[in-house]
């Protein structure tokens, strides 16, 4: 049953660009990018229980690294995607090493401040980012083909997303994934089991930065323009909201949240002035009444309904 559903979803995703308009394909690319961003946040918050608020900054680092790799170095696509992830992870490693030396909440605060600082860097480092004018992203090329529109980018974006989902599953089931959850549940017990708590937290943080960096590279494949304004705290909150809607700590929730809430936020673009209130209310209401996310909430209530 599960396998059938998965196959159906795969088939749908593959034929999507053949049957739909350009806008739908663009949206699909965007949702897949958000899926990878959410997976990154899921690893650090959901799996390891560490609070990082710099997802947008790492996303930005990924976008610009990718842009630079394309224009300045003319690297092939797989290399520039990898480079985007690695550069983000490296920066994350530096920030994390400092922030994780002390209390947990320092990670939240330091990453928050780091996010603000990075937005400033994006706005000021004109040669790389275009500064306040934004940056035209040149088309990426794969095996000699130039990717010039959403439809051409889609298969590549989809392939990367599937790869990242697979990686998330493998990591979650591995020794490292178990260590993440051990640290989340009880640091003292994790210590007694021989888990090096600091290293584990740092690994979660760097991995989440890697995912955000890759998401940035994905964005750079199908987009032609990026402005630092869209790389601020707002974007971090958007990703956080998606993960919260899907259910903190749930892997399928992170993906579901990205898609469901990605669609909602796209609709909300019609009413930008309500966006903030709605994001904020969603965060508050979910934390109050459905901390395990929309899907678990519906599931629980269906069960209750069935029993009644």
């Amino acid at each position: 049953m599960r396998i059938l559903g998965l196959l159906a979803a795969m088939a749908g995703l593959i034929v999507l660009p053949l049957i739909s308009s350009g806008y739908v394909v663009y949206l699909a690319n965007l949702l897949l990018t958000f899926t990878v961003l959410c997976l990154g946040m899921h690893i650090v918050i959901g799996e390891a229980g560490q609070f990082s608020l710099a997802q947008a900054a790492f996303y930005g680092i990924g976008i610009y690294t990718s842009g630079l790799a394309n224009t300045a170095f003319g690297w092939p696509l797989p290399l520039s995607v990898l480079a985007s992830g690695l550069v983000a992870a490296l920066v994350g490693l530096c920030i994390g090493t400092l922030a994780l030396r002390m209390r947990d909440i320092y990670l939240a605060l330091a990453t928050f401040a780091f996010g603000e600082a990075m937005q400033w860097v994006f706005l000021s480092w004109t040669p790389v980012t275009g500064g306040p004018n934004g940056l035209r992203i040149p088309p990426a090329s794969l095996l000699g083909f130039e990717i010039v529109n959403d439809r051409q980018a889609y298969p590549v974006v989809l392939a990367i997303t599937i790869l990242m989902i697979w990686a998330t599953v493998v990591i979650a089931r591995s020794r490292l994934g178990r260590a993440f959850r051990a640290v989340r549940e009880s640091e003292v017990a994790a210590l007694a089991m021989g888990v090096s708590v600091q290293t584990t937290k740092l690994a979660a943080f760097a991995l989440s930065a890697f995912f955000a960096g890759v998401a940035g590279a994905m964005f750079a494949i199908y987009s032609t323009y990026i402005h630092p304004d869209s790389l601020g705290f707002q974007t971090t909150i958007l990703v956080l909201t998606m993960v919260v809607v899907g259910g903190l700590g749930s892997f399928s929730g992170a993906i579901g949240g990205a898609i469901v809430f990605g669609l909602i936020s796209e609709l909300l673009r019609q009413a930008p002035s309500y966006q903030e209130i709605i994001y904020g209310l969603i965060l508050i209401v979910f934390m109050m009444f459905a901390p395990r996310g929309l899907f678990a909430f519906i599931g629980d209530n269906l069960k209750r309904f069935a029993r009644a």
Binding site: R178, A179, R181, A182, E185, S186, A189, A190, A192, G249
Partner: peptide, 14 residues
Amino acid sequence: ELFNELTVLENVMI
């Protein structure tokens, strides 16, 4: 100091 949200098997595996 158990890993409360994890299963018995996962607790022992850790």
